[in-house]
Design a protein around this nucleic acid. Structure first.
Lengths: 183, 183
DNA sequence: TAGCATCTGTAGCAAGTGCTACAAGGGGGA
DNA sequence: TCCCCCTTGTAGCACTTGCTACAGATGCTA
């Protein structure tokens, strides 16, 4: 039983890196197993089925993503205008590209109700919202939640541009952020 | 030669409806052919290959989408704040949900460089940008382009929320739009 | 050392994938 | 009437998909 758990952990780590690098496109069992350095037979020994593999690995990635966000920007309250600029810069940075691309894939999979993605998607949305709210110089309130949601919409829109080949649009939108005010 | 063209048109119409209803998830040839009421053999008689099928059909959908947008909101110049509210309302309306869901799928497919989606995605982005710019009470300029890009980012972010199960976030963000100013 | 549970490789299944070879129907022109 | 070519169905190929049966290896316990 111990070997099994250790191998499982190793596989999760290897597959996290692999999914971040390649996205959710080619996730058949055999390539996944190859990326983890084992046979597909063993992959289904460590995990119940394919959904279990993806759910576990992506859940782990989401946790790491949240930690990465926390570490990247100090949890100091700031006005929403500044927070939006800082978050956009962060999210569009090359280091974050793989995560955001995976997030887009997950959102698309959630949209088509494909288990286990709807649950994962709303978990990620909640984490992101909490991260934004914790950095806004407003008291906890419906108003703050609404502002956080709007900021997140902008951020996700920018990410979508970058992913879908609209780098020019993403740059343009980023430039327009300077003109933005909340009152 | 005439029958072939007529059938091709009929198939395009049928598949447009089918893709809008079901998204890009299950697009193997046999289900597509069944949705069009023909055999997979004939589908590949009317079209060169699978990419040709999807490219043609989605191109047609994109044209219809652009026309739908034009018809839904008169081309009158208005301040960006008002345009954003109007466009969000429009894009989140039930009638537009299938189109926006398909757009998310296309963006995700473009992100993984899967032909023919990158080309289609940037075509749709351009159409959307032009639609926004034409309705903004600013002279054609870099500033107007940047504002349009920002508006589009918000709109796409809202759509992503709705698709990914974040209806609550989408509602919250929509509420926050009232607080938004550009200067 | 024997017995047993845990682990892992080989091989394969049934279903589905994109695509194609082949031949037969059918309608128009000579 | 014959021929030709556009159109269509049948059948199938080679491959990938998720998953499993089976048997053998391995190591821990008694």
């Amino acid at each position: 039983m111990r070997i099994r758990q250790e191998q499982r952990e190793r596989v999760i780590a290897a597959l996290s890196a692999h999914l971040l690098a390649t996205g959710l496109a080619q996730t058949s069992l055999r390539p996944l197993a190859a990326a983890a350095g084992i046979s597909d037979r063993m992959l289904l020994y460590y995990f119940r089925d394919k959904a279990d593999v993806l759910g576990t690995v992506i859940g782990r990635i989401a946790d790491g993503f949240a930690e990465g966000l926390d570490a990247a920007l100090p949890a100091e309250p700031m006005p929403p205008e500044r927070l939006l600029v800082a978050a956009s810069l962060l999210v569009r940075s090359p280091a974050m590209q793989p995560s955001m691309r995976l997030w887009l894939d997950i959102a698309a999979a959630a949209a088509r109700q494909e288990p286990p993605f709807p649950a994962i998607a709303s978990q990620i949305l909640d984490q992101f919202m909490a991260w934004l709210e914790a950095r806004m110089d407003r008291p906890a309130s419906a108003e703050r939640r609404q502002l956080a949601a709007l900021l997140l919409a902008v951020i996700d829109g920018l990410a979508l541009f970058d992913m879908a080949g609209g780098t020019a649009q993403a740059d343009a939108a980023t430039a327009a952020l300077a003109r933005l005010r909340f009152d």
